[in-house]
Amino acid sequence: RGITCLDHENEKVNMYCVSDDQLICALCKLVGRHRDHQVASLNDR
């Protein structure tokens, strides 16, 4: 089922925000508060 995003409840987390040490979803990176932050794919970890 996967872990859902805290900010976007219908989205699954699939990225890690290095700047905030937090799991995020694609919407967080595209339009959310993490858009200018350094992120890594969970597949890279």
Rank of each mutant, 00 (worst) to 15 (best):
R1T: 08
R1D: 09
R1Y: 00
R1Q: 13
R1S: 06
R1H: 09
G2V: 05
I3V: 06
I3L: 07
T4M: 10
T4H: 09
T4K: 06
T4A: 05
L6D: 14
L6W: 05
L6R: 14
L6T: 15
D7Q: 07
D7G: 03
H8R: 01
H8C: 03
H8Y: 00
H8W: 00
H8A: 02
E9P: 15
N10T: 04
E11T: 05
E11I: 03
K12A: 09
K12E: 14
V13P: 05
M15R: 08
M15E: 08
M15P: 05
Y16H: 08
Y16Q: 15
Y16L: 08
Y16K: 15
C17P: 04
C17S: 07
C17R: 04
C17L: 00
C17A: 04
C17N: 05
V18S: 12
S19D: 06
S19H: 14
D20N: 02
D20A: 00
D20M: 00
D20R: 01
D20L: 00
D20E: 08
D21E: 10
D21N: 12
D21G: 11
D21K: 12
D21R: 09
D21H: 04
Q22V: 11
Q22T: 10
Q22C: 04
Q22W: 02
L23E: 15
L23P: 15
L23H: 09
L23A: 14
L23V: 12
L23K: 15
I24S: 06
I24P: 15
C25R: 00
C25L: 00
C25Q: 00
C25N: 00
A26P: 11
A26S: 11
A26D: 14
A26L: 04
A26M: 03
L27C: 10
C28D: 02
C28W: 00
C28L: 00
K29G: 14
K29M: 10
K29S: 13
L30H: 11
L30K: 15
L30R: 15
V31N: 15
V31I: 09
V31T: 14
V31A: 14
G32D: 03
G32V: 02
R33E: 11
H34K: 03
H34M: 01
H34S: 03
H34A: 02
R35Y: 02
R35V: 10
R35C: 08
R35L: 04
D36A: 04
D36E: 12
D36R: 05
H37L: 01
H37D: 04
Q38H: 05
Q38L: 04
V39P: 05
V39A: 09
V39H: 13
A40K: 07
S41D: 13
L42F: 07
L42Q: 07
L42I: 08
N43L: 08
N43V: 10
N43Y: 14
D44R: 07
D44V: 05
D44W: 02
D44K: 06
R45W: 07
R45V: 08
R45P: 12
R45S: 13
R45H: 15
